[in-house]
Amino acid sequence: MQIYLPIADMPISIFLVLGLSAAVGFISGMFGVGGGFLLTPLLIFIGVPAAISVATVSAQITASSMTGALAYWRRRALDVKLGTVLLMGGLVGTVLGVWFFNAMRRLGQLELVIILSYITLLGSVGSLMLAESLKALWSERRGVVPPRKRGPHHPWYFGLPLRMRFQRSKLYVSVIPLAVLSITIGFLGAVLGIGGGFLMVPALLYLFRVPTAVVVGTSLFQILFTMVAATVLHAVTNQAVDVILAVLLVLGGVFGAQFGARAGRNVKGEHFRLLLALIVLAVGVRFATEAVIRPADPYSLGATELR
């Protein structure tokens, strides 16, 4: 069954889109990540123009992070103060990212930038996560509990000027490293069409030692507001948000996420991280092979601008 997308100017199979978004929703529900880093490339792969994919996925991430953030909010498992500080940085990063995006597009190098960033980002984050979870699995098998480095010694960047206290996260930290982190993730999000949860969650956990209980909720809170801004800005600046496609993506994502969350409860923490690492790595490897292997057809059509 086909439905016509009024903004993308193309008919698309309803079941294909629902299936894709449900599959990505399953993964995102299971791991508490937005899934934008999977959904955007998949949409481009099935023929949706890149600009429409990036812009419309931001609406989908808005919906899924709303559901997620509300669940954490009810359990009071999010740090609004920390989330707000991160949100400020995220918005600055988004604006910078959009500016960079347009500058690269003018130079005709956007494609290269996107491919290289996806390879580096997914490759490095995926490898780190894989190494981490393999190490955890290995020591568990040997029956050794690795000592958690949670001593009184804070990393040097905690002590930079402008320190702020975040009671909920039991954190007393300089705003500067938080700003650097959130601006970087906001920037990458705008350029690559991702929410950035898969970067924010490990960064808050490992670099800032935010308690596990609040880290996902806080990240979702920040993503929610950044993505609302991204949806509106994409609609206003390049009219690339397709509301019909967005509704289909949200519907599929909502149901997928419910089943994913249920499945996620039956998976052990270490296996869980190993799986997520493998998924992130797989997407990275897919991009890398596509870039390294000699293309069957070196030519491709770019978007057509109507006169």
Binding site: T62, A63, A246
Partner: peptide, 10 residues
């Protein structure tokens, strides 16, 4: 569109 996404999420 953002409202739609938010309300569906809610």
């Amino acid at each position: 569109t953002a409202m739609m996404a938010l309300s569906m999420g809610w």
